[in-house]
Each structure stands twice: as structure tokens, then as C-alpha cells.
Simulated scan of single mutants.
Amino acid sequence: MAAVEQPGTAPSGLRGGLRRVEGSLRPRLREFRSWWTRSLASWLPARVRDLFGLSPQRLLLRRHGNELQLSLWRGDAERALAGLPVPEAGAAEADPLGSLLSPRIVEVPRWLVLPASAVLRRRLTLPAAAGERLREVLGFEIDRQTPFTAAEVSYDARLLGHRGDDQLEAELVVVPKATLEAALAALGALAPTLAGVDVADAGGRPLGVNLMTGAQRRLRGDPWRRRNLVLLLVAAAALFLGMWQMLANREAAADYFEQQVDEEVRQARGASLEKRQLVDLIEGGAFLQAARAGKPTMVEVMDELARRLPDDTYLEKLSVEGERILLIGLSREASALVGRLQGSPLWTDPALAGALQPDPRTRMDRFTLTAKLATAPAQAPGNAAARGAPDAAGGH
């Protein structure tokens, strides 16, 4: 709308106040109408919203090297579709994606999404009256806010929010025309099918701007959109009134049964958890008790070694890892150590690991000897748990 002022009809202060009120009220009314429409549409199933065109959809194209990533943007969610090679500019098909996508997705508007590094963004604070013609107003700020002129770039503006009644926050998004033309040329035969060019934010989501130049923009108006919206509202109201009575009759019964089910589920989960904890406690205690009882202690191993090794044998390292005993040391009778260690009830299979190495300093032989720690026969888990159940329960 354009307001025509005639001299002498109203004071200048009043005219300025009316323009400020008009500039700040219209964008908010549009935002309220958009929110109200989305809220009503959210009550309908997804198929119904798609049928009446109430779910905004975009086919997003992102280029990564020689591959073109396709994803479907519906509402506020994005779903990846496929990755395809970029079609060449001289492709025979008018629409290279026509034979690859389903008929419903082929008709979805296609948008090229540029990376965030390809554009320049500037955040500005403007009077609320600029909201009516935000893009035109920010076009005059290109020379001051960017190192480019208006003729060198393609740009768009987006409203970020209002600051009180007299100011608003906006963002200017600028891309050099050379960069945009190179991105469009890289798409080959897909470039003429684009409905717009958007930019990805830091999280990879589209900003909601259109950086295509005025000559390239395609403004598609649907003459049936308003009529379909009215019919949709009437159908939604009729459906709501028709279902209200049935929902009211079923609501009380559903709530009662839901409470009963929740209570029974809660009790069953509590009993199952307590039973599982008790079984784990009994089995764990029985396992630890059997493991400790079946293996000799370190003190017993050291005592047995002290009795069996000769006096001219010195140990540099003694370690027990699991069921393996490792001995490293010096001895004048290293070759006879295996025979001395055999027959012990605490270990089995003593053997030298590697060849003996003479030590010129001590005139002894360095040896590395291994053995397997003897353990008691393992008991059946059921018997161990049965014997440990009274003790574990009493201890707990």
C-alpha cells in the first residue's frame, strides 16, 4: 500500500506518527496471521496438510565437490534423500531429476543452499517503519555495510525481531554476483529449474532468504490458495464439531483405564527391578567367593617359592597376572629350577621362557620362568547361587 499525502490535510507530526504505527503494525499482523495459520494446520494429519498445500516444502540442493546432495525440507524438519552426480549443462533432459524422483517430490520448489562462507551477513537496527519495505531499505545500506556496491551483489533481508515499538532487528545477507553465477553455472542443467537460492547458517539449516536476482526470481502465485484455505477451515471446524461429542464420551473412560494400566505397570517394574537386584547380588557374591576360594593367595605363592628355590637364586621380578606366574631373576642353577618347581600344589606346568643368558657381572644365568596358577574346580552357578543366597540375603 502507498499512502498519498496532500498538503494541509494533517499536521506533519501526526502524519509521521501514523506512518510509524502503520510500519510497525503491518509486519506484526502478518506474523500473527502466519502463526495462526500454522497453528490451525498443525491439528491436521500430515497427508491432509500436504494435500491442501499447508506444509511448506523445499527440495534443497547442496553441492559437495562433484556430488549433489538432495534433501527435503518440510515444515521445520529436513530429511536427506540422495546424493547424485552433478548433471552437465548440455544434458538432453529438460529436467535431469524428473526420472529420479517421485512425481510428488518433482513438483516441490527447488532451492540451492550456499555455504555460510560464500556470503556476507550484517545485523542492523532500523526504525519499525522500515519493516514494510525491509529489502528496499537494506539495499541502500550495501555500500556502507559491505565492501561491495549494490550493482556487484545479490542480496536479501530477513527480519530477526522487534525491539520495543519503534525499532526492529534485521539482517542483510549479501553474495557477490560472480560467486552466485559460478554456483548456478556449476549446477548445469538444474540451474533453470531453481526457485531460489538460500544460505546455510552455522548449524546447516537454511536462513530463509532468496539471493537470486530480480530477473531470475520466479514468483508463483496460486489463485486457488485462498479458496482452499477457506474450505480447509470450514472442513476443520466441521470435523472438530463432529468429533467433539465422541471424544467427550470417551475421555473419562480412557483416563480411568490409563491410570489403572500405569499403576500396574509401575508395580510390575518395581517388582522386576527388585528381583533382578537380588539375583545379581546373590550371583555376584557367590562368584567372588568362589574366585577367592579357588586361587592361592600371594603370600602362599611367595612362601612356596622361598622353600623351593635354592639359596643362590635371586628374583628380580615376580608377577601374577590372572592364572599366569612370571619369574625373572639370576641363578647358578637356572637349568634345574624347572625340576625344583614341579610338583607344587599351587602351580602347574613350570617352564623356561627363552634361553638362559649369562650375566658376566654376577657370573650367574639370567632366566625367565613361567607357570600356571593352580585353581580349584569351578562350581556350577546354580549350586553356588543356592549356597550363597542365605548368606547374601542375611548380609544384605
Rank of each mutant, 00 (worst) to 15 (best):
L70M: 01
L231W: 14
A118G: 00
P27D: 07
T362R: 11
P11F: 12
T9L: 09
L126K: 01
M243H: 13
A374F: 11
R227P: 04
G23I: 11
G204A: 06
D50G: 12
R62T: 07
T179N: 00
G284F: 05
E181D: 11
A80I: 08
L288H: 11
S34K: 15
P192I: 12
V108Y: 07
R135Y: 04
W35N: 13
R225S: 15
E78I: 12
K295N: 08
Q167I: 00
Q245T: 10
D312R: 08
R122M: 01
R28L: 11
L190Q: 00
M246A: 13
R15Y: 06
A290C: 03
V338T: 13
R135P: 02
L168N: 03
A291D: 14
R63V: 11
L278P: 02
R363P: 00
V209K: 08
Y256E: 15
R220A: 15
L120N: 00
L352C: 02
V209C: 04
R62A: 05
T213A: 05
A41G: 08
R220L: 14
A41F: 09
V199T: 10
E251F: 05
T193S: 14
L40F: 11
L44D: 00
A41E: 05
D255R: 14
Q277L: 14
G284E: 12
Q277V: 07
A389Q: 15
M302H: 09
I282K: 06
E274A: 15
E141Y: 15
D312A: 07
S34E: 13
P206R: 07
K275Y: 10
T362P: 03
A235E: 07
T146N: 02
E300N: 02
R226P: 02
H162K: 01
A336H: 11
T297W: 07
A254Y: 09
L100C: 08
S55I: 05
A355D: 04
P85L: 15
R217D: 09
W35D: 14
G339C: 01
R307P: 00
A385N: 14
L327W: 02
R217P: 03
A183P: 10
H162R: 06
L124S: 00
M298V: 05
A130E: 08
A129I: 05
A94K: 11
L239K: 00
V113T: 13
A151M: 09
L101I: 05
D222S: 13
S117N: 08
